[in-house]
Design a protein around this nucleic acid. Structure first.
Lengths: 243, 243
DNA sequence: ATATAGATCTCGTCA
DNA sequence: TGACGAGGTCTATAT
């Protein structure tokens, strides 16, 4: 693609807040929170209507380089073609050796994704079904920013002991256990009590994490994160009937 | 764009492992680690040569939907146009109402980014310049997976006390301090000693984190992550001379 | 395969 | 604005 044609497309796309994508051969320098150099190669570059910038290599899901929305973008054509961009304290210089193909379009989309099965849904489920933790667990609050910290589910047991439940939607690690421990200790310190119970609610827990959990007198309860829309793909494109 | 033309482009691009991008109006359902629904709107969809899939809305840096590399992709044209994809246990159904434009290209890129200023560089710097921690700090190892955990810099002081240094390239939080505490306690437990010193090396630390750090008798040392390529953008496109 | 921790993490939320 | 924690986190590395 000719330098002149690319410039025109670039200017027009950015002026009219279109999404602009192009295939190119380039070399990239990044400077900001870190420093990086990416030698010459073919990439896909995306500039969105909010002036965010993404550089994708032909493989891997994540961009190899990026700038946050609101970037200042300047296409220089003095000594070859160079895309110079800045977003806050982050700088990106893209030296363009060739542009193979480009495409621009105005995309209309005000929708937000509806997502279920996150940690919040999990703590909801436990608050509504306290027997998942133990027969005598009585929840008092959920997802609350207390002075003790952000506690997923807080309550007490039949004997009147305070209970802190930390939910994780994945296999609980050492870091998850120390997080629970931090909340328990904070409550004991601020309330001046001892024997606060800690419960890790997660589908699984690593061996080391379980050892540390038990060392601290806490316990693990196996709980699956809820997926309320599950029916959809179970019937239509689930594991059984996909291909 | 005609349904037939799109199908042809799609099939050809995937068969020849090209990167394939297109603008479309669509509705998306996701099922896997969670469940999600994204109502109808205009998006940019990217299929890379490793069969990873990205769905981008016209704003925000991150993809609203994605599948990891190695996805199985099938374009169905029975009841409208539907892109059905699966990668492991993750399913994505994209109902395509319109395809505005599409572009495919074979990208050649075997390069890896060279990045500096990460936590590893920071621990390197401390190992080579132990006076950054204290005048009498003597480092013994760096970035080592020990039975105590993954410790950034490990050493001792002039009095023979063991010292654990945890590096963070950003403002240290409560979680960072508990991580340091975990390493210190593990060492004390396994070596049967007391008084192991904990040092948090980071450019800054939050007030709560500092309080917890001092409560544990640890200390904070202000250290900036190194940026060896910094000259590049300082001279050419730094804050002063960019625009 | 699982476990662990970093990341130019990003993003939301609340003080 | 900073702090704190979740994330369909992802990615790299070691066991």
């Amino acid at each position: 693609m000719e330098k002149h044609d690319f410039r025109e497309l670039f200017d027009r796309a950015l002026a009219s807040h279109q999404v602009f994508v192009f295939f190119c051969n380039c070399e990239i320098r990044y400077s900001g929170r870190a420093e990086a150099y990416l030698p010459r190669g073919d990439r896909l570059i995306i500039i969105k209507e909010d002036q965010s910038l993404l550089v994708h290599q032909p493989v891997n899901g994540n961009p190899v380089n990026y700038l946050k929305p609101g970037a200042e973008l300047r296409l220089e054509a003095e000594d070859g073609l160079v895309l110079r961009a800045r977003s806050g304290k982050d700088f990106l210089d893209v030296r363009l050796f060739r542009v193979y193909d480009a495409m621009a379009g105005k995309l209309e989309d005000g929708q937000k994704q509806v997502l279920q099965g996150n940690e919040r849904d999990m703590s909801d489920m436990i608050k509504d079904n306290p027997e998942l933790i133990s027969p005598d667990f009585i929840p008092l609050s959920r997802e609350e920013h207390t002075k003790f910290g952000f506690i997923d589910v807080f309550g007490h047991d039949g004997a009147g002991n305070l209970v802190v439940v930390e939910c994780k939607r994945y296999t609980a690690s050492l870091a998850c256990v120390t997080q629970l421990r931090r909340y328990v200790e904070k409550i004991e310190e601020l309330k001046g009590v001892r024997g606060v119970k800690g419960v890790m609610a997660s589908p699984a827990i690593s061996a080391n994490a379980l050892a540390m959990l038990e060392q601290w007198g806490f316990r693990h309860v196996a709980v699956q994160p809820p997926k309320r829309l599950e029916r959809h793909n179970k019937g239509q494109s689930g594991l059984q009937g996909f291909f």
